[in-house]
Amino acid sequence: MRRNLRVAAYAVCVRDGQLLLARSPGPDGRPEWVLPGGGMEHGEDPYDTVRREVTEETGYRIRVTELLGVDSLQLVGRRRVGRRTDHHGLRIVYAGEVTGGELRHEVGGSTDLAAWQPLDAVPGLNRVPLVDIALGLWRERPPHGRPETGPLPRQMNEE
């Protein structure tokens, strides 16, 4: 079984009751909303990763204001090129504040649209689970970096 570890950093940017999100093609082809952010490059600090990724995906420069928490997810059994995989995603979630730049859409990257979405409209959006996890961290600001709203699935099997 192939094992893979991916470390990524994401930003929760809230302004005037709206959350900054990016849109990405989902696994079924339907677009889904994601937090701006993404994978760390080798040797890169996660603090620098989140700032770089937000700029790439939205056009904005941000100031990181707080470390909200860390989310860990393991996916076992997804088949790629005929091989089983054991994927472990470690997602570092920061709060961020827009300090400059202009909203624009990423070209040739993992997202195709960036937009501010009203916080009360987020539950109705087609979104990845990390959006809800990160909003829980943002709302609760738990000192240990884990949401208090109940148990989250930490491991998922996909056959």
Rank of each mutant, 00 (worst) to 15 (best):
R23I: 04
P36E: 09
P129G: 03
R127Y: 04
R127A: 10
I92N: 08
E97P: 00
E102C: 02
G59M: 07
L75C: 02
R78E: 12
P142A: 05
G37C: 15
P27V: 10
E148R: 14
E56T: 04
P123S: 09
L20P: 00
L90D: 06
E57C: 10
V76Y: 03
T111M: 01
R84E: 12
A95N: 11
Y47N: 05
R23A: 13
R52C: 07
V54N: 03
P129K: 14
T111Q: 05
G150F: 15
V122G: 07
G59P: 07
E41L: 15
A115C: 05
P31T: 12
P46V: 14
P147D: 00
L35H: 06
T58K: 10
H105L: 01
L20G: 00
P46G: 06
G96Y: 10
Y60R: 06
V76Q: 03
E53L: 09
P31E: 13
G77Q: 07
R78M: 00
P118F: 02
G124H: 11
D132F: 06
P147K: 04
D112Q: 04
L67N: 01
V34A: 04
W138K: 01
E102F: 10
G108K: 09
P129E: 13
P25F: 06
G96N: 08
E97L: 11
L35R: 05
H105F: 07
T58F: 11
R30K: 13
H88W: 07
N126Y: 00
V122M: 10
G145M: 05
D120K: 06
R78S: 02
G124L: 13
